[in-house]
């Protein structure tokens, strides 16, 4: 079986600002603290080093339960594309890629693509996640 697109959560939004402004919000600690942790979630710590290999760390707290998300920057191509790894538990690794496209006067089409990779402890961690979306779709269509 060849590799199909990996399973991912994809979200698209048209935002009321040019690409540069939207891009910069993603590498600004204050902005991240606000929009990554919408009420009732609170940002209890945001530490980022926006350079390739730099750290991405957000601690979100909701009802006294803290979740730490950590990763590192994989790609910084202002104002087109930004990518960082995303892990919330040992053995869980995934990648978040955000693309910014001009969309009419002063607007940006932002696409967030969160790609899940298989846990490290499984027998194979290559190509494993591929085709699952397709498979899921097929299984659900058959119900």
């Amino acid at each position: 079986m060849t590799d199909a697109p990996a399973t991912s959560a994809v979200v698209r939004r048209v935002l009321p600002a040019p690409q540069e402004v939207v891009y910069d919000a993603w590498i600004d600690e204050d902005a991240l603290a606000e929009f990554m942790c919408p009420y009732p979630v609170r940002a209890t710590k945001v530490e980022i080093e926006p350079r390739i290999g730099g750290r991405f760390f957000v601690e979100m707290t909701e009802a006294n339960h803290a979740t730490e998300i950590s990763g590192e920057y994989l790609e910084l191509d202002r104002p087109h594309r930004l990518s960082f790894s995303w892990s919330y538990a040992p053995g869980v690794d995934s990648v978040v890629t955000i693309t910014f496209e001009a969309h009419g006067e002063g607007h940006t089409l932002m696409t967030i693509d969160h790609t899940k990779l298989p846990p490290e402890d499984v027998e194979s961690h290559t190509g494993g996640w591929s085709s699952i979306a397709e498979l899921l779709e097929r299984q659900l269509a058959a119900l």
Partner: peptide
């Protein structure tokens, strides 16, 4: 994404 839109 909604929260970012609101901020912008």
């Amino acid at each position: 994404a909604d929260a970012l839109a609101a901020r912008l």
